[in-house]
Design a protein around this nucleic acid. Structure first.
Lengths: 150, 150
DNA sequence: ATATTAGTCTATCTAATTGGTAGATTATAT
DNA sequence: ATATAATCTACCAATTAGATAGACTAATAT
């Protein structure tokens, strides 16, 4: 399950996506409009900045802003920053590989084999879904509901 | 990521699968041969029993045994017992549904929409992979390694 | 019967993680 | 200079993960 941290990050990033190239947005504004605990959000945004997703500006007229286009920021990148590994086991993680301390032989571990498949299936979606894609989905979902479609 | 609990459970269940219909196996035997902490394993096995996966017998000649065929026990069932939800968000969980406390509208939440896709992709594998499948994979992996294949 | 065996129940315990807050500090625009 | 707003340091409480100890109960062998 995604942590609150990750959900907050995604919410904030979606809000920043809607204001892409419209100048910095205040933490307090993000916090209020998106209903995110301010101090916690602070830490999250700082994290996203240090990982190269956001830029920031201090002083009046300052705030946070996307450093890349919403279409170039993938869900997988966000999750990895705030939650770490996406895979079921660390032994198949592409970005956080670690040997399972007790595993006698990785090459013949059937769980690892399945975990690999699950990882590929998940990443196939998460590395292809950008913030822009999510905004698009949102508008589609809203339209769909208005027209009473499912 | 899967918890240790889940990994231990899978290890133990695979061992019990190899001895399917050969009578009960001692906790202590499982613990030693599979290198699992005994007391922790005790709790896990009891859990699996209460969830209808294992049977048990007390007294001498007793132990734990599979109550269904290895081909009928799916990875998804095991993970759900020991780790809970498989999905990224509780709002798309088939077995542990819960509303996201802060979500203003589930029907137009784009994260939920993506989480649904990821859930389907993961479950497509996990509900189709049985303990028997894992044993089969294991032997295949062992053969493959002997012959030097990849 | 009773001693032995082996699962079950209750109760802890520690360490790590999660979610969150407070307050001082530093950079910047005016 | 001063107000603004991000950044840094330092906590803190609650929960979960991982694990152990010991009493209790049921079944079996002798």
């Amino acid at each position: 399950m995604l942590s609150r941290k990750t959900k907050y990050a995604i919410k904030a990033l979606l809000a920043l996506s809607r204001k892409y190239e419209q100048g910095p947005v205040l933490i307090s504004e993000l916090s209020e409009k998106e209903m995110l605990p301010k101090k916690f959000l602070e830490a999250i945004l700082l994290d996203l900045k240090n990982q190269g997703i956001l830029g920031s500006k201090k002083g009046s007229g300052g705030g946070y802003y996307l450093i890349k286009a919403p279409a170039d920021i993938m869900l997988s990148s966000i999750i990895r920053i705030t939650d770490g590994p996406i895979s079921l086991t660390s032994c198949v993680s592409l970005n956080f590989y670690e040997r399972c301390d007790d595993c006698p032989d990785e090459l013949t571990c059937s769980l690892r084999d399945v975990a690999k498949d699950v990882r590929d299936a998940s990443l196939n979606i998460l590395t292809k879904t950008s913030l822009q894609d999510m905004l698009d989905r949102e508008t589609k979902l809203k339209k769909g509901r208005k027209k009473g479609k499912k």
